[in-house]
């Protein structure tokens, strides 16, 4: 045993024997499934939304600062690139929101059977699409 991290791989079975912890299969040999794809998508949208907070912070600071600063951020959000970002942001936010609720149900021990997991996954995808479209329809009507 040369690597000290091996120490973290040591576990005990319920009858007290020591075993090496099992390692889950690596991604390269894993068949893509709705469960794994949606899991990584939750992460990707989370990281994307984190980047999106830059725009939120910019908006808030500009609103505090001056009319000129506010005009700049308002111009950016209203530009084609701004709209594209806002659209991407809305998709990512609704996905992370819906899938996050799916996670909360799991934390309460609900919906953990595989058919239910598949069904809730599909429901999240449909809800994301519906809510995104709805958001932009409301936006178009209100404006």
């Amino acid at each position: 045993m040369t690597d000290t991290r091996e120490a973290l791989m040591v576990a005990r079975t319920s009858d007290g024997r020591t075993v090496r912890r099992p390692l889950s299969p690596h991604l390269q040999v894993y068949r893509p499934q709705i469960t794994s794809a949606m899991s990584i998508l939750h992460r990707i949208t989370g990281v994307a939304l984190s980047c999106g907070t830059l725009l939120l912070v910019w908006f808030l600071i500009a609103a505090v600062e001056s009319d000129a600063a506010y005009a700049r951020v308002a111009w950016f959000i209203g530009s084609p690139v701004g709209y594209l970002l806002m659209f991407g942001w809305s998709v990512a936010l609704w996905y992370h929101f819906c899938n996050g609720i799916r996670h909360i149900f799991w934390d309460f021990g609900m919906g953990l059977e595989l058919p239910q997991v598949h069904a809730s996954g599909k429901a999240v995808l449909v809800a994301t699409a519906v809510l995104t479209v709805l958001t932009w329809v409301v936006f178009a009507v209100v404006r």
Binding site: Y70, I77, V142
Partner: peptide, 22 residues
Amino acid sequence: FALVPLVLWFIYSAIRLSGMKR
């Protein structure tokens, strides 16, 4: 948990605020 209602309110607010003056 806290973000579920807060995000819904935020999206509603963001739509309302769009195009508003400072």
